[in-house]
Design a binder for these strands. Sequence first.
DNA 1: TTGACGAATAAACGATCGTTTGATACGAAC
DNA 2: GTTCGTATCAAACGATCGTTTATTCGTCAA
Lengths: 248, 248
Amino acid sequence: MTQISNNEKVEDTRERILDEAEILFAGQGYHAVSVREITSAAQCNLAAVNYHFGNKHNLYLEVFRSRVIPRAERLHRAFEAFLEEEPETSTEAVVRSLARTFLQGPLSDAERERHYSLISRELALATEAFEMLAQRAFQPFLQRLYRLLFPQLDPERYKVEGKLQLLCLIAQVLYFNFARANVTRVTGCEYDERFKAQIVEAITRFSLHGLTSDPRDFDGNASALGREADPERNVTRPERLASMSAKE
Amino acid sequence: MTQISNNEKVEDTRERILDEAEILFAGQGYHAVSVREITSAAQCNLAAVNYHFGNKHNLYLEVFRSRVIPRAERLHRAFEAFLEEEPETSTEAVVRSLARTFLQGPLSDAERERHYSLISRELALATEAFEMLAQRAFQPFLQRLYRLLFPQLDPERYKVEGKLQLLCLIAQVLYFNFARANVTRVTGCEYDERFKAQIVEAITRFSLHGLTSDPRDFDGNASALGREADPERNVTRPERLASMSAKE
DNA sequence: TTGACGAATAAACGATCGTTTGATACGAAC
DNA sequence: GTTCGTATCAAACGATCGTTTATTCGTCAA
């Protein structure tokens, strides 16, 4: 590319291919998408993929390099911004900021869906793209969370236990993004702003107090829930289920 | 099939195809696996897939019908068995039984890996196989858990909030199974029996008390943790992080 | 004007895909 | 012994895959 003559041609072929490739890979997965589908969506010649990226697999990796990872870093910055909005850096503030980042953060809904589709496909695989994600997105963010939530811990002695608690937290924000179909199916709710706020509150509440927080305390006003912590609330109630039969 | 002449030929071609197809589909996904790979692994003729199952897609669905869903029902029964081992049907008993079912249940490690690979690929898709899973595995099990954990709730009024709490729980057991690569990467631990017991404890602890349970209470003896519930433990400790700076 | 170079194009490459065909083997039923 | 239905097989089908080739276009430097 030498010079830009027309503003409407600013987005050149290479970028259009990356855009369309991300959408298609996210929607159907690497093997289900053909190079012809991508170049057709990007309105360019079939050979353009091999010209700009060498081959299909390299295009896939470039989607992660130039799109997914920068977006993950953007989410990381959004988390820090949410955290600074909080009155104090409490455990609750961290959890709520995390849930907000991943459900109400700076991404559009379409972007979010693409992002987590691509990531969740790699999570189980330990491939090249997974390694890239782990090094440049997961690990730094998890370390940041670890220091925020467990600053008093000797990192050597309690390493694994603390990390497992973190993963319990991460598992939820990931699930509510990548398994949208299942969440919608189970709850009957679409992912509108109201429902996403409800999810944020559910994650915050669950991650702070677990199931010991009685759902009867829900008052329907999701955004206000949990702000005023009630120390009496999160006490185990073994008697709640003790009289229940195992059947029905 | 008419009669069985040889015990070694009990497992006929159709079953061998299903076995190998499940392994390959779980490992690489539907589109990445060719019919030739499957029939080669099953040591039968290429045309056998079309003869026994009509086409490739139907074979995929049959893997879910005859393998994945029955296994999910087996897990459901294992959960009930774990639950009956518990001294009382408390919230903790339900959570622990759930974590044990999905991490130490009746499945072999290879089986578990296959199972969750196949399921997690479908979770986001809302395809035909997903619908099958939702109707015959997810929904009945979630309803059972709902009644176990929230027997006192008017199912109409608190439906969504309670279900979201359930999904927070499910999200964890799913994550620790299907994102093994990431868990191993983050923690540095392989999925041996000791580590799986540690995960069960982490999920149980987190789901009961959330992050308000101080990791300093970990005593390293995973299987004994949480058995003796300490009512003082799960009280919010806002002072723990109040004095912490947002940076570092 | 010329040459060089980046970019886009149509066309074709060999390989592999899912599927179909027609033939063959074999046991059960009559 | 003949017929019939099931199962397996080698071989080939047309379609599509990722990739390569050769050519053309447009722009800038000499």
